[in-house]
Design a binder for these strands. Structure first.
Length: 291
DNA sequence: AGTATGCAAATAAGG
DNA sequence: GCCTTATTTGCATAC
């Protein structure tokens, strides 16, 4: 499934499952043939956080956009979604299966049954209204001759919440949760109204104005250098929970904010935990059936 | 030149 | 203040 591989950061079904020795070192060792696992259908596609983003059954892709199970955007053509064609063989459930993940599997099936009946309201969010606004927003933006990048930069410069080109892109595509959409919408609405007003009055600078009322902006994303990452990782391998003192020292040595270093460890622990969870899930769910 | 997207940094919420 | 978990969002870069 080359097309799928290109899409997915990780295809669960093809991961070699070797209990208790999943390290890279075991790859060249020839391994136990009895533990060899063939490619499995259905396959689960996940992101790096271990979040399931889709299932693949045969060559059908069933996307999952978020854990609320809500897809704002319509299903893309060329990606038919059929769940019942080949029932997903779920394993008998035991206590050892992470409950959240099993719920997700059910969610996938539920989503399949919901196909075609686009709900218009979720969590008190009027999806139809947001869809319409997103569509109109893009038209309005293009009418002003603005790019996503320009809008993103303007929003970052203006007061109020900042959003990047990525955010604009995702909003226009509705590649976000209803909650996020609900949050961004008023910001974009307000900004666009102001930009249009300026356009009508013949102003040149459509994008340089103060936005909504002041609010704390999100911290800019830190980019660690490869060298810094190498050092951080070596610390993490030795100790996933460095003390406050240690973190202060690391931060000082690398010349990053202590808080940035602390969050890095938090995120790293979270990522590690998620990969472990997934491995357990895969083992308990599929190995018994497919070997 | 713009837009789309993968990975992971930052944030929210509950302890 | 720190933690975990879930989630949002942006940098870098692919398309």
């Amino acid at each position: 499934l080359p097309a799928v591989s290109a899409l997915a950061p990780l295809i669960i079904g093809t991961i070699p499952l070797i209990p208790n020795s999943a390290g890279p070192s075991s790859q060249s060792g020839g391994g136990n043939p009895a533990l060899q696992v063939q490619p499995i259908t259905p396959q689960l596609l996940t992101n790096a956080q271990g979040q399931i983003i889709a299932t693949v059954i045969g060559n059908q892709i069933l996307p999952v956009i978020n854990t609320q199970g809500i897809t704002l955007s319509p299903i893309k053509p060329g990606q038919p979604c059929i769940v019942s064609a080949q029932p997903a063989p779920h394993a008998p459930q035991t206590e050892s299966t992470p409950p959240g993940l099993f719920l997700l599997l059910h969610l996938l099936l539920f989503l399949g049954s919901q196909r075609g009946t686009a709900p218009s309201e979720v969590d008190g969010v009027n999806l139809e209204e947001i869809r319409e606004f997103a569509k109109a927003f893009k038209i309005r933006r293009l009418s002003l001759g603005l790019t996503q990048t320009q809008v993103g930069q303007a929003l970052s410069a203006a007061e109020g919440p900042a959003y990047s080109q990525s955010a604009i892109c995702r909003f226009e595509k509705l590649d976000i949760t209803p909650k996020s959409a609900q949050k961004i919408k008023p910001v974009l609405e307000r900004w666009m109204a102001e930009a249009e007003a300026r356009h009508r009055s013949g102003m040149q600078n459509l994008t340089e104005f103060i936005g909504s009322e002041p609010s704390k902006k999100r911290k800019r994303r830190t980019s660690f250098t490869p060298q810094a990452l190498e050092i951080l990782n070596s610390h993490f391998e030795k100790n996933t929970h460095p003390s406050g003192q240690e973190m202060t020292e690391i931060a000082e040595k690398l010349n990053y904010d202590r808080e940035v270093v602390r969050v890095w460890f938090c995120n790293k622990r979270q990522a590690l935990k998620n990969t472990i969870k997934l491995t357990v899930y895969i083992c308990t769910t599929f190995t018994g059936i497919y070997q």
